[in-house]
Amino acid sequence: MQPTCIVIVGPTAVGKTALAIRVAEQFQTSVISADSRQCFREMSIGVAKPSTEELARVHHYFINSHSIQQEVNAAVFEQYALQSVNQIFAHRPVAVMTGGTGLYVKAFCEGLDDIPPVSLEVREQISRQYEQQGLSWLQQQVAQLDPVYYSTGEIHNPQRLIRALEVKMATGQSIRTYQQGNKATRPFKIVKIGLDLPRPLLYENINRRVEIMMAQGLQEEVRSLLPWKHLNALQTVGYNELFDYFGGQKSLPEAVEAIKTNTRHYAKRQLTWFKKDVETQWFSPNNEQDVQEFCAAATR
Rank of each mutant, 00 (worst) to 15 (best):
V7F: 06
I8M: 07
V9Y: 06
V14T: 06
A20E: 10
I21Q: 10
A24H: 06
Q26D: 13
Q26F: 14
V31C: 13
V31L: 08
I32C: 00
I32K: 12
S33D: 13
S36G: 09
V47K: 12
S51M: 13
T52H: 11
E54N: 12
H60W: 15
S67M: 02
I68G: 12
V76I: 14
F77D: 01
A81I: 11
N86P: 07
H91C: 11
T101P: 04
T101I: 05
A107E: 06
E110N: 12
L112M: 03
S119P: 02
S119N: 09
E124L: 00
S127M: 09
S127D: 08
E131I: 03
Q139Y: 03
A143D: 03
Y149E: 03
H156F: 12
N157F: 05
P158Y: 03
R160A: 09
A164V: 01
L165I: 08
E166Q: 11
V167A: 00
Q173A: 01
I175W: 03
I175H: 02
T177C: 12
T177L: 08
G181H: 04
R186T: 10
V191P: 08
D196L: 12
L197Q: 02
P198R: 08
P198L: 07
P200H: 05
L201H: 11
N207I: 00
N207P: 02
N207T: 12
V210K: 04
G217K: 01
G217N: 06
R223A: 15
L226P: 08
W228H: 12
K229V: 09
L234C: 05
N240R: 12
E241W: 03
G247N: 12
I259D: 04
T261L: 14
H265G: 01
K268Q: 14
R269I: 14
T272V: 15
V278F: 10
F283H: 01
F283R: 01
P285E: 03
P285H: 03
N287M: 01
E288G: 07
E288Q: 09
D290G: 10
C295K: 00
A297F: 14
R300A: 11
R300H: 15
